[in-house]
Structure formats: C-alpha cells, structure tokens
C-alpha cells in the first residue's frame, strides 16, 4: 500500500482558525507548532538524517511536497529531556536509549547491506524496521537495549504522536480539532455539526 486516500475531501481544520472553535491560547499553541520548527540541538547530524529516513517509512507522506515535520520535534523533546514520566525497568534512561537505538539501526543497515539506512530501498528499509520491531536483530549492536521495546515505546510512539498532533493529520482523519469555546451540539450516530468534517464515500462515488 503506497497510495493514501482520505474520505474527507473538502475538510481543512485550519479553516476554523477564526471561528469560535478556536480560542487565542489554542491558536498560539498551534501557531508555534506550524511556524517555529526547532533547530537541531541533541541528535548528531548522522542520527538526524537517519531518523528522517526512518520517520519517512513509519509515517510516509509521499503526496506532500512539504511533509509534516517530525524529527525536529523529537530532537526538541530529547533536548529538553521531556520524558513521559516513567521508563521501563529493562530500558536505559531515555536519552541514552535514543542514541543507542538509532546507532544500532544504522549498524544493522551497514551489516546487512553494506550501506547506510538512508540509501536502502523503501522495501529494504521496511524489512529492517520490521525486524527491529520483532527483535530479529544482532544483539552486539543493541547491548542492553531491547530492540522491540525501543521501536514501539520510544521510536514509533513519538513519530506517530507528533504526526497526529499536526492539523494536516487532523484534517485527513476528519477530527474536529480544537473546540473551545465552541464544542459540539450534535452527539448522536451520523450526526454532524456544520463545523465538522463531511465524509465522502468512495464506493458510492464510483458506482
């Protein structure tokens, strides 16, 4: 599957920017996300470029000229050391885990293909990431870091979380987005307020 289709053809959550669905504080928070992309401060240049390549496979955006930025926000989170408030007992501290995990993926790529991860074909990249997810890895590169745990709880969770906090992602899934002071009046099955996304049915369109 490489093509992306959304049933919310006409919906852009940002169209509501100046409506009562958005208040000033929400506008400020989202504006910062849209405009102030943080600079690289934590990852090395190599790790940054590797993570760009990984993020492009975990959340591919082939249809976008300017993809939703993901890596700058991961770097920002690591720079601020803003963890989730816990770490699993079998994992090293968060920042160490990221260094270790990214370097291990780079090493896996070189070991398997003799090239760096960024140069692999999308298919090979996916295969490698799938192996990391299922712990099919060379333990010498990973040492005490559980590959699958790193993949799911740190890497994938971050990439996905950052992508789905972007308005472009809200629009493509038909999410109502910010809702204060105006919330919603119609709550039942198949009920939609005029300020919510309208869903189009592909099959019905084609028929």
């Amino acid at each position: 599957m490489s093509e992306f289709k959304t049933p919310f053809l006409t919906y852009d959550v940002l169209d509501k920017w100046d409506t009562p669905s958005w208040n000033d504080q929400t506008r400020a928070a989202v504006r910062q996300r849209l405009d102030d992309e943080p600079p690289r401060r934590f990852l090395s240049e190599e790790q940054w470029s590797l993570l760009e390549a990984i993020a492009a496979r975990l959340m591919p955006q082939p249809e976008r000229e300017e993809p939703v930025p993901i890596v700058p926000w991961i770097d920002d989170m690591l720079h601020r050391n803003a963890g989730p408030g816990y770490r699993y007992a079998d994992m090293p501290p968060m920042r160490e885990a990221w260094h270790q995990g990214l370097d291990a993926i780079a090493a896996e790529a070189r070991n398997r293909h003799g090239k760096c991860f960024e140069e692999l074909s999308p298919g090979d990249q996916d295969a490698l990431l799938g192996d990391v997810q299922h712990n099919r890895v060379e333990s010498r590169y990973w040492r005490d870091l559980p590959a699958g745990g790193f993949f799911l709880h740190l890497l994938l969770k971050q990439v996905v979380g950052i992508y789905y906090s972007h308005p472009a992602a809200w629009s493509e899934i038909g999410f109502g987005g910010p809702a204060s002071p105006r919330g919603y009046a119609r709550l039942g099955f198949d009920e939609r307020d005029p300020w919510e996304a309208e869903e189009f049915d592909f099959e019905a369109e084609h028929a």
């Binding site: 009562p20 204060s180 002071p181 105006r182 919330g183 009046a185």
Partner: peptide
Amino acid sequence: NMGGWHNWTQMILQ
C-alpha cells in the same frame, strides 16, 4: 454558557 452569544451557533441549540 461557554462563549456566550459569541458561540451562538452551538448555544442556540444547546
């Protein structure tokens, strides 16, 4: 209500 008359599109119903 929240937003008062500024939020009339919702509050006229709710």
